[in-house]
Design a protein around this nucleic acid. Structure first.
Ligand code: MN
Ligand code: MN
Ligand code: ZN
Ligand code: ZN
Lengths: 132, 132
DNA sequence: GCTAATTTTGCAAGTCATTCGCATTCCTGC
DNA sequence: GCAGGAATGCGAATGACTTGCAAAATTAGC
């Protein structure tokens, strides 16, 4: 584990939400080159340390977001607020059963799944309604 | 409804799976400029005629895929085979209940959700096992 | 029908996330 | 210390998507 990889993993471990490459590059504890960030994230994800998904949001465009797999392959799904751009953790993935059912029904093997929600969070709904 | 928009909508109505912009541009019935394709797809999606999601696959990179909303806002979710790159329709979305539950639990309002599976389809599993 | 205003389109250039080639630096084992 | 392989930085390239602008098409007013 090199310095660059360790720093990225550490930042993502501390993070309360998935982070994009641009967010990681701005983080004070990440001091390596952008190409190194991309290469390190690939490395870490391939080894099962990280989990990622691509999310498009009008304000930030299309970016891949990374988070730590809490404990060996466990992962969460997220809600993304299109107003404040925060993520809300929906808790551990509960799709194992459904995936198995679909695999049996269609004969395919699922190697990955992507699921997330977008909308407006409670806080942003309040501030919008009171202001406008 | 202009000629460009009509042709795109028609191609997507006939399609059995979501299509990317590059696939649409290659389609014989689509004869307009790439910028027009993008602008038309935005137009059609905003009006509720289309549904889309961003999918990354190693062979094709990151692209947005479009499909028709069968009947006024009904939509499917899909399995994507990373070997033959075909999509399998998982049927109409059954997440209404879950979304409502999450909205109540966290107080946010969900305006959109993304869900899809990736893996290897039955056909590709066979041909792989018999060849290698 | 005929002209002016509005919308849509094509083209070319621009943007932005991500990748790649290559030279330099780092690390590891001897 | 030194050689060899891996990792990094830098800058250029890639590819999806967007945008500015002028030409073409559609619509509205008469
Ligand atoms: Mn965002
Ligand atoms: Mn594909
Ligand atoms: Zn918010
Ligand atoms: Zn297949």
């Amino acid at each position: 584990m090199t310095k660059a990889r360790r720093s990225l993993l550490h930042v993502l471990e501390q993070a309360s939400e998935p982070l994009s490459v641009s967010a990681l590059l701005q983080h004070p504890d990440v001091s390596c080159n952008q190409a190194t960030v991309y290469r390190s994230l690939h490395y870490l994800e391939q080894r099962g340390y990280l989990d990622s998904f691509v999310l498009h949001c009008t304000d930030h465009g299309t970016e891949r977001y990374y988070s730590c797999t809490k404990e060996q392959a466990e992962h969460s799904h997220w809600f993304h607020c299109t107003a404040c751009h925060r993520f809300i953790d929906l808790g551990a993935c509960l799709m194992k059963e459904d995936l198995k059912r679909w695999e049996q029904q269609y004969g395919f093997t699922v190697s990955d799944h992507t699921f997330f929600l977008t909308g407006v969070c409670a806080t942003c709904k309040e501030s919008t309604s009171s202001t406008d």
